[in-house]
């Protein structure tokens, strides 16, 4: 029961570890970016999960019949984490764009996006 009631958070931890591991272990730069994206997505889910209240609805003023009114009090989920995460998603997209642009330039100058091949080319260049 307690294990399953935190279902979202287990998914968050799983995604975080998958993304982090991909980022560290893969030599392909594109795969590293994918890992970074999965890692960041897990954090988005963490934020969205924590705003949710059981039985809560969207933060709109409504009366008991579902009509909108200004006096009713309803149980609603906290919208602030969602708004924060909209910002973080934009930041994530910008990071991905910069990362991919760098990968394109790396491919143009090195002719490879495999980290070990790039390291080898750099080592030969330095010698």
């Amino acid at each position: 029961m307690t294990l399953l009631s935190h279902y979202n958070y287990w998914v968050v931890i799983l995604l975080m570890m998958v993304g982090f591991y991909t980022m560290i272990s893969r030599g392909n730069l594109i795969k590293k970016m994918v890992g970074l994206n999965v890692f960041q997505t897990s954090v988005f889910m963490l934020y969205i999960s924590m705003g949710k209240i059981r039985g809560g609805t969207a933060p709109i003023l409504m009366d008991a019949h579902g009509e909108s009114s200004e006096t009713a009090h309803v149980l609603y989920s906290n919208p602030l984490p969602h708004v924060l995460i909209l910002t973080a998603i934009v930041v994530g997209i910008a990071t991905t764009a910069v990362g991919l642009a760098l990968i394109v330039r790396i491919k143009e100058t090195y002719g490879s996006i495999e980290e070990d091949e790039i390291n080898q080319i750099e080592a030969e260049g330095a010698a």
Binding site: F20, M23, L29, K32, L36, F39, Q40, T95, V98, G99, L102, I103, R105, I106, T109, Y110, I118, E122, G125
Partner: peptide, 16 residues
């Protein structure tokens, strides 16, 4: 050209 790879490494570590 190593500026590109060092910027990429910084991007990965900085984003983490």
């Amino acid at each position: 050209r190593r500026a590109l790879t060092s910027a990429f490494r910084y991007l990965i570590m900085g984003s983490v």
